[in-house]
Design a protein around this nucleic acid. Structure first.
Lengths: 333, 333
DNA sequence: TTCAGCTGTGCAACCGGTTGCAAAGCCTCC
DNA sequence: GGAGGCTTTGCAACCGGTTGCACAGCTGAA
């Protein structure tokens, strides 16, 4: 039903090529012709069909935005920022939900069928094999919130979780905590592993500090709560915990409250991500910031540029974290 | 670079049409031929280009998923459920973020350029004019979480906010609250207006109950908190508040806590939506459920069916709310 | 006046598929 | 052996654009 190139061409009394050229940047069209064409197009409400042109240009301006994280509240802002950053550059996010998906094959197929110009994998829990599978299928890929490695196969943008773990250790040390705990996310997530590594390494510089370790089943409120309840029941608690993430911390916070324990008086807590909720006054969580907006800006910039720039060398782009002081750790001595 | 129809046809020694038929449901291909084609396709890793076929079939299987709500945590599960429901039917969500957008024109253009098969408007705060503009541009549209009206121009799926308001009034009445407050979302959102209407109407059946009204600037934590702080400062508080939504309630909860007021002992609170966070034990909010999964299932079902079924009559589909008893209202007398 | 050098335009082929139509092939039944 | 019916296949046109190439028309220099 909508007007096509042909309709406009007929109405303006020119060839289809002329109309096409009038709508493509930097093509040669006489001013008078362009005007006639624009008038005709206007009258017919003509818009070039992006999909048809993608056939010859090879560009759809669609970007696959794939994630498996639709439960951690921080991802709402992640989607917000991603979609806006993409839209600002005239790119369209084709959203792919990989919850419970273990095999990249289906999504590779689908993304190829829709000829996306590039793929953003936004997840800290999806195995690298997904990003690599998209890459192997020939699409430009960036992995946001992925694991920092020196020579990655695809662009990876995120924080250095090892450094963040170290930072948590230092923060607890400076506040004089001795028996500390690591309450990690799922043990098979690289983010969990790296945060643990850094945390343990940081603590090892302080001979008088001891570490106990446990893992929640997921980066989710209930998981954090359950794990903290288990810890309360099992053995004497540590003096302070570095939780795998804010939502886990909030779960832990709720468990401690139930048990009549005060934070930070009885137990200290430090999270990671600095999601909006951590700043809510009734939560007021001390945490380590994750510079989400910068990560997203960089990710979109990279995916956009690697669309045009073939033979782009993948690299890891790492952003600095900082400690956000709030009310769940006792003050520095 | 990826293999095309022609490549497969040559390798299998058949015409392009034969290959095309082998990949379309219910086309007539001899078993032997089909097998040869499938072998060739397999060898070349061939997948039909969805965009190319959309040119002739007129179907892209892409659905515009448009929203402006990327701050209310409930929308994370909304996106989760929408993407999964769409994927389950082989549909692809093209995500459109309309935050701060006042004019539907741009998005209409964009969605037409990408020939989406249909549009889901998922928002309770976007003016109806958006859904209607998409509809006017000839695309099947459903408006999820939209205003319930008897004869809508497009399918609208959601709750009856007036009934929900009435339900809140009855709930407070049964618990013996007399001076009650309405702490609504943005005054220009239809959801706010309808919840107010129903609430006021419900109260009017109880001669001994009085109502004060105020509005938060947005459906957001800070907005709810700010408004409740203002109420605390301004005048004697009501005995209980019906808040426009859960996230607003949680903001109000935090304000009350700051002021040293106990919930439900000093002030009662009832929210709406029953988002996951409302069930968190450290929040434990009494609220009115919004049957989000059913709404989404129905929305996707409707958009999928109105793609094929032209001259589909739009209607309002309304789901029942129920009160979820938790800890922020005093028990029934 | 002639010719080189531009610019602007149309023709036609192409992108990767689908589909109406007609012809070919096969089988059955008389 | 031939007519009739069904299935299978290829041809060619088409979907809505883009683009290489050739040519027309104009300008300016020799």
């Amino acid at each position: 039903m909508p007007a096509t190139l042909k309709d406009v061409a007929e109405r303006a009394g020119v060839s289809r090529s002329a109309v096409s050229r009038a709508f493509t940047e930097g093509a040669s069209v006489a001013p008078a012709t362009r005007q006639r064409i624009e008038k005709a197009a206007e009258a017919l409400g003509y818009r070039p069909n992006a999909l048809a042109s993608s056939l010859t240009t090879g560009r759809t301006k669609m970007i696959g935005l794939v994630s498996n994280n639709f439960h951690n509240p921080i991802f709402l802002s992640v989607f917000d920022l991603f979609t806006r950053a993409l839209q600002d550059r005239g790119l369209r996010p084709l959203l792919v939900n990989l919850t419970d998906e273990t095999d990249p094959e289906n999504s590779v197929r689908m993304l190829r069928q829709y000829s996306v110009d590039g793929v953003i994998v936004a997840s800290s829990t999806l195995p690298v094999s997904f990003a690599e599978a998209f890459h192997a299928a020939g699409m430009p890929v960036v992995h946001s919130f992925g694991r920092h490695v020196t020579f990655p196969k695809v662009d990876v943008i995120g924080i250095d979780n090892i450094a963040a773990g170290r930072m948590a250790a230092e923060t607890l040390a400076r506040r004089g905590y001795k028996n500390v705990g690591f309450l990690g996310g799922p043990a098979d997530a690289t983010s969990t592993q790296d945060r643990y590594t850094g945390f343990a390494e940081g603590l090892s510089r302080h001979v008088d500090m001891s570490l106990t370790t446990s893992y929640a089943a997921a980066y989710a409120f209930e998981a954090g709560r359950d794990e903290m309840l288990r810890l309360c029941a099992a053995a004497p608690l540590a003096d302070a915990y570095f939780c795998g993430d804010d939502v886990l911390s909030i779960g832990a916070l709720s468990a401690l409250k139930d048990k009549g324990l005060k934070v930070p008086e009885d137990v200290g807590l430090i999270g990671l991500n600095n999601m909006a909720m951590a700043g809510w006054q009734n939560i007021n969580l001390t945490t380590i910031s994750n510079p989400v907006p910068q990560i997203i800006e960089k990710s979109v910039e990279l995916v956009a540029s690697s669309v045009t720039d073939r033979d782009h060398r993948p690299a890891a782009h790492t952003f600095r974290c900082t400690v956000i002081e709030r009310g769940t750790l006792r003050p520095e001595a």
